[in-house]
Amino acid sequence: MTPNYGKELSAGAVLLIIAALLPFASDGYMLSIGVSIAMYTVLATSWALFSGPTHYISLATAAFFGVGTYVTGAGIDLLPYWVLLPLAALVGGVLAAVVGLATLRLSGVYFVIFTLGLAEMIRQCVTWFQNQQGHKGTYVLTDLTEAHIYWQLVGLAALVYLIGWLIQHSRLGFALRIIGDDEQVAAHSGINTSLSKVALFIVSGAVAAVVGAIIAPRYVYIEPAIAFNPMLSFQVVIMALLGGTGRLWGPLVGVIPFTFLWEVISASFPNQTTLLLGLSFLIIVYLLPKGFVGLLQKIRAKTGGFA
């Protein structure tokens, strides 16, 4: 495997540079789609980093994202912008650690249930706190343009891919794959299963929080209902599953078609978005349980070659 390392990394670097050139080619509609794709790529990939190998489904993306958004929202007038991103990562990571330590020692169901309501619970707390302060939302006024946001997200995507790649080739990644296959076996072979899971969940949560912090200036005005939109968690899960979580690049393959599909759906059927989202989710779960990655592997296995 060793000789491929350089090839994998340089291929990634080339793709990254191409992706970074988008704002020079277009600055209107395509760039705004580009921001969406970059945002969902980071979210779905970091989701898959944790949920792919462990098979634990996290429904908390919106919670981390919202927390990150509020770090920017609350801190923009007090601290320089560049301090806010690591701060968001820290807050997201701590939140993930708390959730992980409370639930990941137990069976997966507790974790899923807990993450299901996490965004809603934090939304309630933030709303309550804001009501105490006597205002409903926060303005985030910066001179960051769409292109700046895009570049930050692409940079973050590169970082996530690098982290994912490093984890895959580390002892932690190996341990996680064993946990995913059989947690009992993993525990018996001396792997600290809860600690490995919590560690990865922290990475995933911190990244989602940074995405929220980066996106916040784009909203200009943030309020709890926007920041903690439960639809986001759902979309991220769909995209990651559509692409497939077995490979690092899997979620990206799901994000791109789904973002375009979503643009069409929300433009043509604005009243049926929830319904269509649910239906597409069910189709993926039943027909593409391993996503495009799994489909590709099936085709390869059938043709017997490296198609």
């Binding site: 899960v237 929830t274 269509l276 989202l277 649910g278 989710f281 069910l282």
Partner: peptide, 11 residues
């Protein structure tokens, strides 16, 4: 599946 179903029903 039931998560997807819940969105279908809400929809």
């Amino acid at each position: 599946t039931t998560f997807g179903l819940s969105f279908v029903m809400v929809g």
